[in-house]
């Protein structure tokens, strides 16, 4: 996959949601896109594989980690930060 980090993250989320990339908006939450808790864990795995990073996420405390999953924009920004921190 090529493109910006944001585009690649949206690509992963769109695939998980079985939507076209153009149907995914930055302000949407994963729940808005129909992605449940298992889908979230799978998306995070796909992100880790795509960018070769470790994402700090525990399904038991989804809001307390450093990884903001409140919207597509938030996830993209968090991944950009992790890529910079871990590969910068």
């Amino acid at each position: 996959m090529t493109g910006t980090i944001r585009d690649r993250v949206i690509g992963i989320i769109a695939e998980q949601a079985v939507l076209d990339v153009s149907d995914v908006r930055g302000d949407q939450s994963l729940a808005d896109l129909g992605i449940d808790s298992l889908g979230l864990v799978e998306s995070i795995f796909a992100i880790e594989e795509e960018f070769d990073i470790q994402v700090p996420f525990n399904a038991n405390a989804p809001d307390s980690g450093d990884f903001d999953i409140s919207s597509v924009d938030a996830i993209a920004a968090a991944v950009e930060r992790l890529v910079k921190d871990q590969h910068g």
Binding site: V41, F45, F57, N58, A59
Partner: peptide, 8 residues
């Protein structure tokens, strides 16, 4: 670990 339900 993969399931993200384990405490550290």
């Amino acid at each position: 670990e993969g399931l993200r339900v384990m405490s550290k």
